[in-house]
Design a protein around this nucleic acid. Sequence first.
DNA 1: AGTTGCATGTAAGAGGTTACATGATTTC
DNA 2: GAAATCATGTAACCTCTTACATGCAACT
Lengths: 179, 179
Amino acid sequence: MNTLSYGLLSLLTRNSRTGYELMQHIQPFWPAKHSQIYPLLAQLEQKGYVEFVHVPQSDKPDKKVYTLTHIGREALRHWIAQPTDEPVTRDELALKVYCIGLVDKEQARKVLHEREVYYQEKKERFMKSYERIEQESVKPPEDLEIDDPLFGIYVLVQKATLKVDADLFWCKWMKSKLK
Amino acid sequence: MNTLSYGLLSLLTRNSRTGYELMQHIQPFWPAKHSQIYPLLAQLEQKGYVEFVHVPQSDKPDKKVYTLTHIGREALRHWIAQPTDEPVTRDELALKVYCIGLVDKEQARKVLHEREVYYQEKKERFMKSYERIEQESVKPPEDLEIDDPLFGIYVLVQKATLKVDADLFWCKWMKSKLK
DNA sequence: AGTTGCATGTAAGAGGTTACATGATTTC
DNA sequence: GAAATCATGTAACCTCTTACATGCAACT
């Protein structure tokens, strides 16, 4: 059982989903392609952590809707209590910045500006996520309790927003250094 | 030529270094084991991007000190102008937080607290890096120019500090939610 | 007519980790 | 006496990406 497998089980605690949907929704937390997810789902099914129903569709391809089983839920609970792996970030920009003195300021500003635009778009997506939570929830998101199904995504959107704000601040600060 | 290869060349713009030293210094930007780095260095040498001198040692094992060549430097310049890959982060904690409602508040606090301690240690390391830059540099770090060899590390330490502060803030905020 | 989205799957290859292998010196 | 540091390298394995494969509906 690797981390991605537990990630898939985690997503299934909120809804039953298809492999395709799981692939889309896990992206912000653990980027993965469908070619990695489908074989893992088959393994999880064999272990009894998930079950699926085959849903035939006429206009679109048939699909398999996966549901978390009781023993899958227990596996998740056990996993949470285990030591947590350290986060891993690999950012090509950091390597470029290390030797940014090799190019002129104009070139350097261009590299930084592109990254700033990227973070700006990311920030807008997080703001939309927050709005969706506000709409879905009966109470204001700040008052969500740990046992509320929306609690997890709400606090993760907060985490992502704090991070993207720090990244945007750094980009702007860097650009000011390159004038 | 993969990103790690360019990362190794980037580090060599400041100093000549051994594979072992490169392995140690690249960790904060692009985590990699020595087993990945040594074969890449051999490739970089074959391509003429780096050169090495064999340095025999009596007390410690012999070493190979690698130096960036002119064409290695040109390859770096070309790479910087190419489109930059998006940063990739994989954090097991985010997956756990998504379904944190599965465990009780005490267990959840423990998970968050461990991560807070991890970030606290990280922050202290960054503060020491900043102090080292202050000592090495003749001018205050804020006044470093793009062409100064210390500029790159200085701005990366700033980036890392902003990020770890955001992470620490989130950890504390999360813990307050779990009371 | 070409792209995008839905939906699943496999195969090949690149990237990354763990383990094996060696060996002296220093620190606990 | 055991573990850590320096220093290099290879082999096996797992993880992740890219490419191959299929097919219909909707949009541009």
